[in-house]
Design a protein around this nucleic acid. Sequence first.
RNA 1: GGGCGUUUAGCUCAGUUGGCUAGAGCACUGCCCUUACAAGGCAGGAGUCGGGGGUUCGAGUCCCUCAACGCCCA
Length: 843
Amino acid sequence: MTRNIPEKPALKGLEAKWMERWEIERTYRFDRTKGRSEIFSIDTPPPTVSGSLHMGSVFGYVQTDAHARYRRMKGNEVFYPMGWDDNGLPTERRVQNYYGVRCDPTLPYGPGFTPPDEPSDPPISISRRNFIELCHGLTAEDEKVFEDLWRTLGLSVDWSQSYATIDPHSQRTSQKAFLHNLARGEAYSQEAPVLWDIDFKSAIAQAELEDRERPAAYYRVAFRRPDGSPLFIETTRPELIAACVALVAHPEDERYKALFGTTVTSPLFEVELPIMSHHLADPDKGSGIAMICTWGDTTDVTWWRELDLPTRALIQQTGRLHQEVPEWIDSESGREAYRQIAGLYANQAQKRMEELLTESADLDGQPRPITHPVKFYENGDRPLEIVSSRQWYIRNGGRDQELRSQFLKRGSELHWVPDFMQVRYEHWVNGLTGDWLISRQRFFGVAIPVWYPVGADGTVDYDHPILPDEASLPVDPTSATAPGYDEGQRGQPGGFVGDPDIMDTWATSSLTPQIAGHWDDDPELFSRVFPMDLRPQGPEIIRTWLFSTIVRSHYEHDALPWAHTTINGWVLDPDRKKMSKSRGNVITPHALIEEHGAEAVRYWSCNGRPGTDTAVDHGVMRIGRRLATKILNASRFALGFAEDIDASAISVPLDRSMLAALTGVVERATEAFDAFDYARALEIVERSFWTWTDDYLELVKGRAYEGDGSEGASAHAALQMALGVYLRLFAPFLPFVTEEVWSWWREGSVHRAGWPTVEELAPHSGDPAVLTETAAVLSAVRKAKSDAKVSMRAEVDSVSVSAGPEAIELVRQAEDDLKAAARAGEVLYSEGEFAVDAVLSAS
RNA sequence: GGGCGUUUAGCUCAGUUGGCUAGAGCACUGCCCUUACAAGGCAGGAGUCGGGGGUUCGAGUCCCUCAACGCCCA
């Protein structure tokens, strides 16, 4: 091939040029005719498109891309699709804020609705269907922005394989898997206490919780024993006294042992309550005896369940106390007391209760302020309440020790990089306290695909759901008619109702291997890519995405979803602080790419060790850019002499020595990549490359320019062979610049060229020490010139080398090149400790 | 309160099973327009490896302990 080397090679424009060419030439298109053993499949994280683009994603995705590129060059057909996680609450919130709208499912569809240009305030109420249309529209725009970023970064994704978790295929996959779970008894619905966000009006799963320290106060309240004597409890939630079902103390607590089995009556409401014992009651907390309500916190739920107590739910899904006086309050004075707090929000009821208890003299002293952890939805603003509600669950081992140990075993079968991340998985699985709650009372998501029969008396029979035919998926039971019924029977006695809920986003994204691999509609493809080889992801979603994906795969395929998982580190700001909007220290990928170029951002990403938190570092990015420039310039030199020369021309010991060193580099870089350590591979290659340009290129320069016959040909052939290897070694990290240089003198894409091997270099390799010894002498001569403050081009009369006999023999083999590079008239040798003395010519 | 990780040069980080005088880049200092590269090159100075204790012929590396920082969970 004729070489086409630019006079002044530059980085400018390379990224845009190759981004486009790769798409046109389908460089990264997946070839599905390849067999399973040839395929390397990657279950790529589908980013949440309703969130903003952040450096954490860039960091992790580039690291994965480097590995994908390595595998592709190694000869694997890489299955590398990209998905978008767009269903669920984050999108709803974004649509609400972006347009100033809110969904009111009772409104009829407005066909001509267009959202306002500016967010409306107050929000406009729109129908569910209009709301969902807006969600689809906005996510489509967001996905475009994400795709542009990934392309700019040079991710070698096959864009023809993309999916979105809200698209019909994902919905079908999600509903089908759910129906399978249901048929096997792995999914079930149950009326139970759930953590409930009163603002979002939805149940919240354990994985979405976080604790926040909040101020509160202990109220010391008197309950009355049958003889009228007071028994004091301390509570932070006096508004729940009306929901009290028992008092509880530790079984070994001498103060209360005698009272177990007796009763008390509650203040104001005069409800008779048993005193019980349970080991979770903390003798050191408050007065050592606590009231159990349904339900003030998760411990209440445990006590309620384990002590088999009645349900006296007080707080409704709106966050307000029941309007009607509960039937368990018998006395007229008790009923009157309840009317004082009926219909109030919990915090209002608390204030009123303080007044009422003070009036009745049941409050002992002043409330004692404390701060304590309170459970919040991670995206919520008000504390969660616990309400009774019917929800769907998937069994995850949280209530079943045998199942839990199966999931722990799955975790240990998975190969973790870095390995210590496995501990986080184990802690999460061991800490589960209940099954996985998958239903959400929201709108933009995958519908729970069931209907329920309505009895002649109008009651809904939740225990016998009506299921759709799989061929009809995806279905929305709120608009589709239940099989065997007419739409007119919806909500009628003897008819049916559709389940109004949707699934949590993780209930769908836990199926990304099945979605991307087309489990549902392309079993042949699925058999070639599943179980996948690699799951790369961030550390914060081990408990959600990683775990739930293992759960679904375990149930559906009795297998791990992937063989390996790589967990990337966290990205910190330049001061090693976590980036967050509230701190105002967020650095966007676009700004960095604009400033340093995509290749430099890739270089920085690949410098972050697997699983290691890494600070945004402009200095490292500048080095990446400099490296890319260096590759262009060194390539121009290495290719500047002749057309392709056969490798058999490589005969000079220095050339063979350089190739021997390169053999070791190939070996070690390959080992590092096989261990998923892209950072180590980059370090090895980069170190070697700088030595190559600093030492070998300087030593060989004279012979390359002047050398005639076989010696010159050896230099030219060695240079191009080494360059061909370096370009391929750098290709996973710096895909643009390596592709550019490759195009100067080679056909096809460097990214489809074979990964360099020891075998291709070995026949042309000699003794690596020739180069290292000669380079050491050259370096000493440079130092002499530097000390003498003369140009590196200054002439040297003679160079005296003192060294061991073996080293002298090695340097002699490269003496002509050394003389040329050092501009030395002669080289003199003597045996002894290593020392170099250069006698500079008098100028 | 528990778990995991980190702590090595002024800064950002390597240092793989314990083994030559602890490395790199940035920054700093000095020199050099050299036909690949001056947005470059060459050379140089700089570290009690977080503190303390222990194992060992030998510890940045293994063990114990303390501390600081980060993350996850309670």
